[in-house]
Design a protein around this nucleic acid. Structure first.
Lengths: 147, 147
DNA sequence: CGGATAATGTTATGCGCATAACTAACTTGT
DNA sequence: ACAAGTTAGTTATGCGCATAACATTATCCG
């Protein structure tokens, strides 16, 4: 691959990150959320209560990031944390009623963001997009390789 | 679009951002660079000396971000800043010799990162990828619409 | 001209993310 | 049963990014 093409690709990924995140931030702001927090709430909604280490794994970010995110979402009342019964080190995190109500609104925002993002693309391209992006992600993923 | 697909897409974009940036960080670290700085150096190499406002536009980030990045890159000796002759508000930024030498190494890293990222994809998919990502980016770009 | 408006850049502050260093608690091996 | 190693979580710190508020300089217009 020549440098021009490589640069176009890397830069396109960088700019997509910036813009998609900025757009998500704008949509989430009216809900009092910052981008990243929605991922945590959606994960709890998908998979139910879990421990912070599991959240870290599911979200693909490091434990200290989870510590701060959970602290803030607890402060805003959307999640609760309680000691795990069988492991005194661990904290079980789960959605509160307020958190569940918020998830319903996030889901709507999430649908419209995805539609906005893929405007003008063929149905087929849109259908293949998540898999394509996951391939790219796995290619550069240096976290412990898939089991 | 149903929520599952929308969520898969948004999450894929978020994870690609995290992983691609992390991989770039790992590659750039031996050069003493943090991700984001390479974009500034490459832009100066592409387009020559320019003012910070133009850098802000070219990089797609806000002026305060450029202030900090230029300050750090100046401190490490890769760029220089001098007052613009015709406008006392502005600073002209340009590569130093050290910066130019670094760009040569960045270009190599950049090629191998792009190849790593697109491993296993068809040549055609790889060729179309930058344009596809740019479409997505433009779709969610809320900065001043293209002129 | 000269006053309003726009543009350049900076500081202050805050968020998500990271790594490093640490404590506390669980698990394993002999 | 206990030392050694592992795992869960936190604190401290630093980076890139953002917005808001501000000072300085340019420009535009009546």
């Amino acid at each position: 691959m020549d440098f021009e093409h490589a640069d176009a690709l890397n830069q396109a990924i960088r700019l997509l990150s910036l813009r998609h995140r900025a757009r998500a931030a704008a949509l989430l702001a009216p809900l009092g959320l910052y981008p990243g927090q929605e991922a945590l709430l959606l994960e709890l909604d998908r998979s139910g209560a879990m421990i912070q280490a599991q959240l870290s794994e599911a979200l693909g970010c490091e434990p200290p990031s989870v510590t701060l995110m959970t602290r803030k979402l607890e402060a805003t009342g959307h999640i609760s944390r309680r000691p795990a019964p069988a492991d005194k080190r661990a904290s079980v995190v789960e959605l509160t009623d307020s958190g569940r109500a918020l998830v319903a609104r996030i889901r709507e925002l999430w649908r419209s963001l995805a539609e906005e993002t893929t405007a003008g693309l063929s149905a087929r391209t849109v259908a293949e997009l998540p898999g394509l992006l996951k391939t790219l992600t796995d290619n550069v993923d240096t976290r412990q390789p898939r089991s």
